[in-house]
């Protein structure tokens, strides 16, 4: 491509088309579990337009890595299933290879600012905690121990104790009620929840799994 002008970022457009800026890449690339500091040096040598536009193999690689980081965080926001106890402690289990626990904790904090949130990461066996002030820490302790410790000095605020059904029962009832069997489209369904999502802790026992082709028996198809 020819450039007749002084260099100016030509990719500066709105929305999804804008790509990641230098700052975003430099901030988020170290989150990748295969991150190597020489990559940061390489980023600085690439014109931003090429970086944003996947214009070279290294630019492509860097963008792919950042995309993997954000995708993992987004999947955790989508598919982590949480519970809340009567001491306003919200907790759940995640599986995060990249260093995105802070992104996921902040997502829950924004929704439940009056709760302490604990997420146990099976990958590094640490529990991430965010308190009401938004302060984050990670501890090498199992989830239950952290929940007990945090719950000890907190006042009781019963949230949903009078609801006699389990979380799974309620969600399964809602889930099954929404399915339009006449429009079943398992190919589309499987593309929306690809099979690696069922490895996430929140989805391992999910009702969705029953509908995944791979988990269906021959009888289900004959029916």
């Amino acid at each position: 491509m020819n450039c007749n002008n002084n260099y100016k970022d030509p990719m500066e457009v709105l929305g999804r088309s804008k790509g990641h800026s230098y700052e975003e890449l430099i901030e988020n690339l170290p989150r990748h579990y295969e991150f190597n500091p020489t990559l940061l040096q390489q980023i600085k040598n690439i014109p931003e337009a090429i970086l944003r536009n996947h214009g070279s193999s290294i630019a492509k690689k860097i963008n792919r890595m950042v995309k993997e980081v954000f995708k993992e965080a987004y999947r955790a926001e989508q598919f982590t299933r949480t519970e809340i106890n009567n001491k306003s402690v919200l907790y759940g289990v995640v599986l995060l290879k990249h260093k995105v626990i802070d992104i996921v904790l902040k997502y829950f904090h924004k929704r439940w600012p009056n709760c302490v949130i604990c997420l146990y990461n099976e990958y590094n066996q640490k529990t991430g905690i965010i308190n009401e002030e938004g302060i984050i820490q990670e501890v090498k302790e199992p989830l239950q121990k952290v929940i007990d410790r945090l719950s000890k000095n907190r006042s009781i605020s019963p949230y949903f104790e009078d609801i006699e059904f389990s979380n799974e029962e309620i969600f399964e009832a809602l889930y099954q009620s929404q399915n339009i069997t006449e429009r079943e489209n398992l190919r589309f369904f499987n593309s929306m929840i690809p099979k690696n999502c069922y490895k996430l802790p929140g989805m391992r026992k999910g009702v969705e799994k029953k509908y995944n082709n791979k988990n269906r028996k021959l009888d289900d198809f004959i029916k």
């Binding site: 989508q78 889930y175 399915n179 339009i180 069997t181 079943e184 369904f189 929306m192 929840i193 969705e208």
Partner: peptide
């Protein structure tokens, strides 16, 4: 928006 689940017809739920 965020999609937390999908039904077997492929729609976000």
């Amino acid at each position: 928006g965020i999609c937390h689940s999908y039904t077997p017809d492929g729609r976000c739920m």
